[in-house]
Simulated assay, not measured.
Amino acid sequence: MATDNNYSLGPVPMAARKGVLSLTMVMLGLTFFSASMWTGGTLGTGLSFNDFFLAVLLGNLLLGIYTSVLGYIGASSGLSTHLLARFSFGAKGSWLPSLILGGTQVGWFGVGVAMFALPVQKATGIDTNILIAVAGLAMT
């Protein structure tokens, strides 16, 4: 029988858990994503400084509280998002959170590929479809 190196069916043992530095790098990678910067730039130019500062402060506060609770639950239990959904919603009910999470990842992938392909096409004139295919393969 094959070993489950991803701990998809049970908690991650303490010895296999990642440290703060590697998880921080993952979170910084999510933060310094071109689509996030584009959204922030659009938001910043559409609001006054005080409104922009308030929107950023409130948005980050809400997101920080939400992710802190999720991080605490995950760190305490050692369980993945999918296993936590199964315990919360049951084996049949866990399909909905998994579908939503999968859908966001497909969208994230598509936005990332487009954020690369469109500017490169404008700068080089290379066909957008070729750039999308190459970037999609490279990201995969």
Rank of each mutant, 00 (worst) to 15 (best):
M1I: 05
A2Q: 11
A2E: 13
A2D: 13
T3Q: 11
D4Q: 07
P11I: 00
V12L: 08
P13S: 02
M14W: 06
M14I: 10
A15S: 13
A15N: 08
R17K: 13
K18H: 15
K18G: 09
V20H: 12
V20G: 01
S22T: 14
M25D: 01
V26H: 11
M27C: 05
L28P: 04
G29M: 07
L30T: 04
S34A: 14
M37Y: 14
L43W: 02
G44F: 06
T45Q: 15
G46Q: 10
L47W: 06
L47C: 06
F49T: 12
N50A: 14
N50K: 15
D51W: 05
F53T: 11
L54H: 05
A55N: 02
L58M: 12
L61Q: 05
L63V: 09
G64R: 10
G64P: 04
G64A: 05
G64I: 07
G64K: 11
I65N: 05
Y66D: 06
T67S: 12
T67R: 12
V69I: 15
Y72Q: 08
Y72R: 07
Y72V: 10
S77N: 06
S77L: 09
L79D: 05
S80Y: 02
S80E: 05
S80K: 11
T81S: 15
H82R: 12
L83Q: 13
L83W: 08
R86H: 03
F87S: 07
S88A: 15
F89P: 00
G90N: 09
A91H: 09
A91Y: 09
S94P: 01
P97R: 09
S98L: 10
L99I: 06
L99A: 09
I100Y: 14
G102Q: 05
T104N: 10
T104V: 12
Q105P: 00
V106T: 07
W108A: 02
V111C: 03
G112Y: 02
G112P: 00
V113N: 04
M115T: 03
F116A: 05
A117P: 04
P119T: 07
Q121A: 15
Q121T: 09
A123W: 14
G125R: 12
D127S: 09
D127A: 11
N129D: 05
N129K: 11
N129T: 13
I130Y: 15
L131H: 13
A133N: 07
V134E: 08
V134I: 15
A135P: 00
L137H: 03
L137R: 02
M139I: 04
T140V: 04
T140A: 14
